[in-house]
Write a protein that binds this DNA or RNA. Structure first.
Length: 260
DNA sequence: ATGACATATGAGATATGA
Protein backbone atom coordinates (compact mmCIF):
# COMPACT_ATOMS: atom_id res chain seq x y z
CA UNK A 1 0.00 0.00 0.00
CA UNK A 2 1.43 3.36 -1.09
CA UNK A 3 0.56 6.47 0.96
CA UNK A 4 1.72 9.93 -0.14
CA UNK A 5 1.55 13.51 1.12
CA UNK A 6 1.83 16.59 -1.09
CA UNK A 7 1.36 20.31 -0.51
CA UNK A 8 0.14 21.31 -3.97
CA UNK A 9 -0.05 25.10 -3.37
CA UNK A 10 -3.54 25.45 -4.96
CA UNK A 11 -5.19 22.28 -6.25
CA UNK A 12 -6.76 24.11 -9.19
CA UNK A 13 -3.49 25.69 -10.30
CA UNK A 14 -1.78 22.29 -9.93
CA UNK A 15 -4.45 20.04 -11.47
CA UNK A 16 -2.44 19.05 -14.56
CA UNK A 17 0.64 18.35 -12.44
CA UNK A 18 -1.36 16.31 -9.96
CA UNK A 19 -3.09 14.19 -12.61
CA UNK A 20 0.27 13.52 -14.29
CA UNK A 21 1.94 12.52 -11.03
CA UNK A 22 -0.94 10.31 -9.83
CA UNK A 23 -1.04 8.52 -13.18
CA UNK A 24 2.69 7.84 -12.89
CA UNK A 25 3.17 7.08 -9.17
CA UNK A 26 -0.21 5.39 -8.58
CA UNK A 27 -0.43 5.87 -4.81
CA UNK A 28 -3.35 4.18 -3.01
CA UNK A 29 -3.90 7.15 -0.70
CA UNK A 30 -2.78 10.78 -1.17
CA UNK A 31 -2.94 13.50 1.47
CA UNK A 32 -3.11 16.97 -0.12
CA UNK A 33 -2.56 20.35 1.54
CA UNK A 34 -3.04 24.01 0.58
CA UNK A 35 -6.02 23.38 -1.68
CA UNK A 36 -6.89 27.10 -1.58
CA UNK A 37 -10.50 26.40 -2.58
CA UNK A 38 -13.85 25.62 -1.02
CA UNK A 39 -15.34 22.11 -1.11
CA UNK A 40 -17.61 22.98 -4.04
CA UNK A 41 -14.71 24.19 -6.18
CA UNK A 42 -12.55 21.10 -5.61
CA UNK A 43 -11.86 19.42 -8.99
CA UNK A 44 -13.11 16.03 -7.82
CA UNK A 45 -14.12 14.65 -11.22
CA UNK A 46 -10.55 14.80 -12.57
CA UNK A 47 -9.42 12.58 -9.68
CA UNK A 48 -12.48 10.33 -9.84
CA UNK A 49 -11.60 9.58 -13.47
CA UNK A 50 -8.31 8.19 -12.15
CA UNK A 51 -10.18 5.95 -9.72
CA UNK A 52 -9.92 8.06 -6.56
CA UNK A 53 -12.53 8.92 -3.97
CA UNK A 54 -12.12 12.49 -2.65
CA UNK A 55 -12.48 13.52 0.96
CA UNK A 56 -12.24 17.32 1.13
CA UNK A 57 -12.05 19.88 3.92
CA UNK A 58 -11.71 23.10 1.96
CA UNK A 59 -11.58 26.83 2.63
CA UNK A 60 -11.78 29.86 0.37
CA UNK A 61 -8.35 31.25 -0.66
CA UNK A 62 -6.32 29.73 2.18
CA UNK A 63 -5.44 26.35 3.66
CA UNK A 64 -7.62 23.35 2.77
CA UNK A 65 -6.76 19.66 3.05
CA UNK A 66 -7.96 16.50 1.29
CA UNK A 67 -7.40 12.75 1.15
CA UNK A 68 -7.74 10.89 -2.16
CA UNK A 69 -8.05 7.13 -1.97
CA UNK A 70 -8.68 3.99 -4.02
CA UNK A 71 -10.95 2.62 -1.29
CA UNK A 72 -13.80 4.28 0.60
CA UNK A 73 -13.04 6.24 3.77
CA UNK A 74 -14.56 5.35 7.11
CA UNK A 75 -14.72 7.16 10.48
CA UNK A 76 -14.08 10.62 8.94
CA UNK A 77 -12.98 13.56 11.12
CA UNK A 78 -12.85 17.11 9.71
CA UNK A 79 -10.91 19.71 11.70
CA UNK A 80 -8.43 19.29 14.54
CA UNK A 81 -10.20 18.84 17.90
CA UNK A 82 -9.44 21.08 20.87
CA UNK A 83 -10.73 24.52 19.79
CA UNK A 84 -14.27 24.90 18.49
CA UNK A 85 -13.48 28.51 17.46
CA UNK A 86 -10.72 27.45 15.04
CA UNK A 87 -12.11 28.10 11.54
CA UNK A 88 -8.98 27.17 9.55
CA UNK A 89 -9.20 24.01 7.41
CA UNK A 90 -5.94 22.29 8.30
CA UNK A 91 -6.84 18.74 9.36
CA UNK A 92 -8.78 15.78 8.00
CA UNK A 93 -8.60 12.17 9.10
CA UNK A 94 -10.16 8.87 8.03
CA UNK A 95 -9.73 5.09 8.17
CA UNK A 96 -8.90 3.07 5.04
CA UNK A 97 -8.80 -0.64 4.33
CA UNK A 98 -5.72 -2.36 2.95
CA UNK A 99 -4.61 -5.92 2.26
CA UNK A 100 -4.01 -6.87 5.90
CA UNK A 101 -6.48 -4.68 7.77
CA UNK A 102 -7.03 -0.95 8.18
CA UNK A 103 -4.90 2.17 8.54
CA UNK A 104 -5.97 5.53 9.96
CA UNK A 105 -4.53 8.44 7.94
CA UNK A 106 -4.51 12.18 8.64
CA UNK A 107 -3.75 14.99 6.19
CA UNK A 108 -2.15 17.86 8.13
CA UNK A 109 -1.40 21.46 7.15
CA UNK A 110 0.32 22.87 10.20
CA UNK A 111 0.38 26.68 10.52
CA UNK A 112 3.45 28.48 9.15
CA UNK A 113 3.73 30.76 12.18
CA UNK A 114 5.67 33.69 10.72
CA UNK A 115 6.56 36.21 11.90
CA UNK A 116 7.99 35.09 15.27
CA UNK A 117 6.15 36.63 18.24
CA UNK A 118 2.97 37.33 16.26
CA UNK A 119 -0.52 35.90 16.80
CA UNK A 120 0.29 33.51 13.97
CA UNK A 121 3.26 32.15 15.91
CA UNK A 122 1.26 31.54 19.07
CA UNK A 123 -1.48 29.94 16.94
CA UNK A 124 1.16 27.57 15.54
CA UNK A 125 2.28 26.57 19.03
CA UNK A 126 -1.25 26.03 20.34
CA UNK A 127 -2.19 24.11 17.17
CA UNK A 128 0.80 21.81 17.76
CA UNK A 129 -0.26 21.30 21.38
CA UNK A 130 -3.73 20.30 20.16
CA UNK A 131 -2.16 17.92 17.60
CA UNK A 132 -0.07 16.28 20.35
CA UNK A 133 -3.16 15.86 22.53
CA UNK A 134 -5.17 14.37 19.66
CA UNK A 135 -2.31 12.04 18.65
CA UNK A 136 -1.94 10.85 22.24
CA UNK A 137 -5.58 9.79 22.16
CA UNK A 138 -5.28 8.07 18.78
CA UNK A 139 -2.28 6.04 19.93
CA UNK A 140 -4.49 4.38 22.53
CA UNK A 141 -6.18 2.57 19.62
CA UNK A 142 -2.90 0.67 19.04
CA UNK A 143 -3.61 0.62 15.30
CA UNK A 144 -1.64 1.52 12.16
CA UNK A 145 -1.76 5.33 12.07
CA UNK A 146 -0.08 7.72 9.63
CA UNK A 147 0.06 11.46 10.38
CA UNK A 148 1.07 12.90 7.01
CA UNK A 149 1.43 16.44 5.83
CA UNK A 150 3.15 19.79 5.69
CA UNK A 151 4.32 20.30 9.29
CA UNK A 152 6.06 23.61 8.58
CA UNK A 153 8.81 22.43 10.93
CA UNK A 154 12.49 21.89 10.05
CA UNK A 155 13.24 19.23 12.68
CA UNK A 156 17.07 19.50 12.77
CA UNK A 157 19.90 21.46 11.06
CA UNK A 158 20.40 18.44 8.82
CA UNK A 159 16.97 19.14 7.33
CA UNK A 160 18.06 22.41 5.67
CA UNK A 161 20.74 23.20 3.09
CA UNK A 162 21.53 26.45 4.94
CA UNK A 163 20.23 26.10 8.52
CA UNK A 164 21.69 29.50 9.48
CA UNK A 165 19.36 31.18 7.00
CA UNK A 166 16.36 29.83 8.97
CA UNK A 167 17.47 30.94 12.46
CA UNK A 168 14.92 33.77 12.57
CA UNK A 169 12.13 31.84 10.87
CA UNK A 170 9.15 30.23 12.61
CA UNK A 171 9.89 26.91 10.86
CA UNK A 172 13.15 26.47 12.78
CA UNK A 173 12.37 27.95 16.22
CA UNK A 174 12.95 25.99 19.45
CA UNK A 175 9.23 26.00 20.35
CA UNK A 176 7.90 24.32 17.18
CA UNK A 177 10.92 21.98 17.02
CA UNK A 178 10.40 20.91 20.66
CA UNK A 179 6.73 20.20 19.97
CA UNK A 180 7.62 18.18 16.87
CA UNK A 181 10.02 16.14 19.06
CA UNK A 182 7.32 15.72 21.72
CA UNK A 183 4.97 14.37 19.06
CA UNK A 184 7.60 11.92 17.79
CA UNK A 185 8.48 10.88 21.33
CA UNK A 186 4.91 9.73 21.95
CA UNK A 187 6.04 6.78 19.82
CA UNK A 188 5.99 7.92 16.19
CA UNK A 189 8.61 7.03 13.58
CA UNK A 190 9.70 9.58 10.96
CA UNK A 191 9.37 7.43 7.83
CA UNK A 192 12.07 9.17 5.77
CA UNK A 193 14.66 8.97 8.58
CA UNK A 194 13.70 5.36 9.33
CA UNK A 195 14.49 4.39 5.72
CA UNK A 196 17.38 6.77 4.95
CA UNK A 197 19.12 7.36 8.30
CA UNK A 198 20.78 10.71 8.96
CA UNK A 199 21.60 11.37 5.30
CA UNK A 200 22.10 15.05 4.40
CA UNK A 201 20.31 16.75 1.53
CA UNK A 202 16.86 15.21 1.92
CA UNK A 203 14.49 18.10 1.16
CA UNK A 204 10.78 18.41 0.29
CA UNK A 205 10.48 22.19 -0.31
CA UNK A 206 12.44 24.62 -2.44
CA UNK A 207 11.44 28.30 -2.60
CA UNK A 208 10.34 29.68 -5.96
CA UNK A 209 12.82 32.53 -5.48
CA UNK A 210 16.54 33.03 -5.95
CA UNK A 211 17.07 29.82 -7.96
CA UNK A 212 16.55 27.74 -4.81
CA UNK A 213 15.73 24.56 -6.76
CA UNK A 214 18.66 24.92 -9.15
CA UNK A 215 20.96 25.38 -6.14
CA UNK A 216 19.28 22.61 -4.13
CA UNK A 217 18.63 25.20 -1.43
CA UNK A 218 15.84 23.24 0.21
CA UNK A 219 14.30 22.22 3.53
CA UNK A 220 12.52 19.08 4.77
CA UNK A 221 9.17 20.08 6.25
CA UNK A 222 6.76 17.48 4.79
CA UNK A 223 6.70 14.44 7.04
CA UNK A 224 4.94 11.10 7.55
CA UNK A 225 4.88 10.07 11.22
CA UNK A 226 4.02 6.41 11.83
CA UNK A 227 2.54 4.78 14.92
CA UNK A 228 4.40 1.64 16.10
CA UNK A 229 1.82 -0.54 14.35
CA UNK A 230 2.30 1.38 11.07
CA UNK A 231 6.10 1.41 11.44
CA UNK A 232 6.03 -2.39 11.66
CA UNK A 233 4.61 -2.37 8.12
CA UNK A 234 7.04 0.20 6.64
CA UNK A 235 8.85 -1.12 3.56
CA UNK A 236 10.02 2.09 1.85
CA UNK A 237 9.89 5.90 1.93
CA UNK A 238 10.82 8.22 -0.92
CA UNK A 239 10.89 11.95 -1.63
CA UNK A 240 9.61 12.41 -5.19
CA UNK A 241 12.17 15.08 -6.11
CA UNK A 242 11.56 14.91 -9.85
CA UNK A 243 8.12 16.50 -9.40
CA UNK A 244 9.86 19.82 -8.68
CA UNK A 245 11.00 19.81 -12.35
CA UNK A 246 7.43 19.82 -13.69
CA UNK A 247 6.15 22.84 -15.64
CA UNK A 248 4.61 25.27 -13.13
CA UNK A 249 5.44 23.04 -10.14
CA UNK A 250 4.35 23.32 -6.53
CA UNK A 251 7.19 24.52 -4.29
CA UNK A 252 6.72 21.22 -2.35
CA UNK A 253 7.17 17.70 -3.73
CA UNK A 254 5.29 14.52 -2.74
CA UNK A 255 6.68 12.15 -0.11
CA UNK A 256 5.50 8.55 -0.47
CA UNK A 257 5.77 5.49 1.75
CA UNK A 258 5.07 1.83 1.03
CA UNK A 259 3.44 -0.28 3.74
CA UNK A 260 3.58 -4.07 3.47
C1' DA B 1 18.69 45.73 3.80
C1' DT B 2 15.62 44.70 0.05
C1' DG B 3 13.52 41.86 -3.18
C1' DA B 4 13.43 38.11 -5.73
C1' DC B 5 8.44 34.14 -6.89
C1' DA B 6 3.80 32.27 -6.82
C1' DT B 7 -1.26 32.18 -5.81
C1' DA B 8 -6.05 34.16 -4.79
C1' DT B 9 -9.00 37.92 -5.08
C1' DG B 10 -10.78 40.81 -8.28
C1' DA B 11 -9.65 44.25 -11.50
C1' DG B 12 -4.99 47.30 -8.49
C1' DA B 13 -2.82 46.30 -4.81
C1' DT B 14 -2.67 43.45 -0.92
C1' DA B 15 -2.44 39.14 2.03
C1' DT B 16 -0.12 34.90 2.56
C1' DG B 17 3.33 31.75 2.15
C1' DA B 18 8.29 29.59 3.83
Amino acid sequence: MKIATWNVNSVKARLENAVAWLSDAKPDVVCLQELKCEDGAFPASAFEELGYTCLVHGQKTYNGVAILSRTRPDDVLRGLPGDENDQQARYIEAVYSHAKGTVRIASIYLPNGNPIGSDKFSYKLSWMDRLIAHARGLLKNEEPLVLAGDYNVIPTPRDAKHPDAWQSDALFQPGPRARFRQLQNLGFVDAIRQCHGETDGLFTFWDYQALAWQRNNGIRIDHLLLSPQAADLLADAQIMRDVRSQERPSDHVPVMITLR
